[in-house]
Simulated scan of single mutants.
Amino acid sequence: MKKNYIFTLILALLTSLTYSQIVINEVDADQTGTDTEEFIELLWTPNTSLDGYVVVLFNGSDDQSYAAYDLDGRTTDANGLFVLATTAIASGTDIDMGADNKVQNGADAVAVYQGDEADFPVDTPISTTNLIDVLVYGTSDNDDSGLLDGFGVTIQYDENINGNKDTESIQRKSDGTYEVKPPSRRVLSVKDNTIQGFATYPNPVTNNVFTVKSKSSDTKEISIFNVLGKKVLSKSLSGVQSDVDVSSISAGLYILKVKEGTKMATSKLVIK
């Protein structure tokens, strides 16, 4: 229960999300026939290397992995998107997962980790170590408590919620939750109230300092909160790019909120 409370609080704080870490942007697991147009779309900073990350697929029947795709050598596009897809819709820059039935219909999960494909052989148990993002989903399936509890999340998204599982996909909204509507692969929705070009790095923070960057030199007001909602650091930054010293903060998971004029950005921040 404590783990679920923490993740619920994190989701509540992420009210205006931009992406300082990789997120799962869209998943289409079910189509007519043998599912020849399945895809997983990731979103991060544009034109950014994906070295050191891996996409892992988990089977709800035993709550263990059934496939893993190493992202080494891959890069997000000009919109920050990267796609893993079945052969019929994969382009030259995508990971081609194969002809069909590569993304199970549910109840299952898609997860992004820091790591390598070799770290996740088939039947690897669920772990939250080095977990970056996860989506638990199904197609009119009962909630899978093993997946939800294992990943510390509370929502299993239903691709068939509108009764159109063969023609709709699960898509991330700007608040970090998901909705189901017709697929929009490689189409990025940009919100007017988000900070353009926002990025933080490195994340996780490993040497007490991380950088905040955007396309604007406007003053940035930053606040860092612990998972209980207590503010542990606030600071004003100037310029397009500035460093933030977090040596006064203990290692752990935090929420970073940045305000730039009327625009906002919020993300998870891991300090090691």
Score class of each variant (00 low, 15 high):
121 P>H: 13
121 P>Y: 12
122 V>N: 14
122 V>L: 12
122 V>W: 10
122 V>P: 07
123 D>V: 05
123 D>N: 15
124 T>Y: 07
126 I>Y: 02
127 S>E: 10
128 T>V: 15
128 T>Q: 02
130 N>E: 10
132 I>R: 05
133 D>W: 05
134 V>W: 05
137 Y>C: 07
141 D>W: 10
141 D>R: 06
141 D>Q: 14
141 D>V: 13
141 D>Y: 11
142 N>S: 15
143 D>V: 11
144 D>E: 15
145 S>Q: 15
146 G>W: 08
146 G>E: 14
148 L>R: 07
149 D>R: 08
149 D>V: 08
150 G>E: 01
150 G>M: 00
153 V>D: 04
155 I>T: 15
156 Q>K: 09
156 Q>D: 08
157 Y>H: 10
158 D>T: 04
159 E>Y: 06
160 N>H: 11
160 N>M: 04
161 I>M: 12
162 N>M: 09
163 G>D: 11
163 G>M: 02
164 N>A: 06
169 S>N: 00
169 S>D: 03
171 Q>K: 00
171 Q>C: 06
173 K>H: 02
174 S>A: 12
175 D>Q: 02
175 D>S: 08
176 G>R: 03
176 G>C: 04
176 G>L: 06
182 P>T: 06
182 P>G: 05
182 P>W: 01
182 P>V: 04
183 P>K: 09
183 P>E: 12
185 R>S: 09
190 V>A: 02
190 V>D: 04
191 K>T: 11
191 K>V: 09
192 D>V: 04
193 N>C: 10
194 T>K: 14
194 T>M: 11
195 I>R: 01
196 Q>D: 15
197 G>Q: 09
200 T>A: 08
201 Y>L: 04
202 P>E: 00
202 P>N: 07
204 P>W: 05
207 N>S: 15
207 N>W: 05
207 N>E: 13
207 N>G: 07
209 V>N: 12
212 V>L: 13
213 K>W: 07
213 K>V: 11
213 K>M: 09
214 S>T: 15
214 S>A: 08
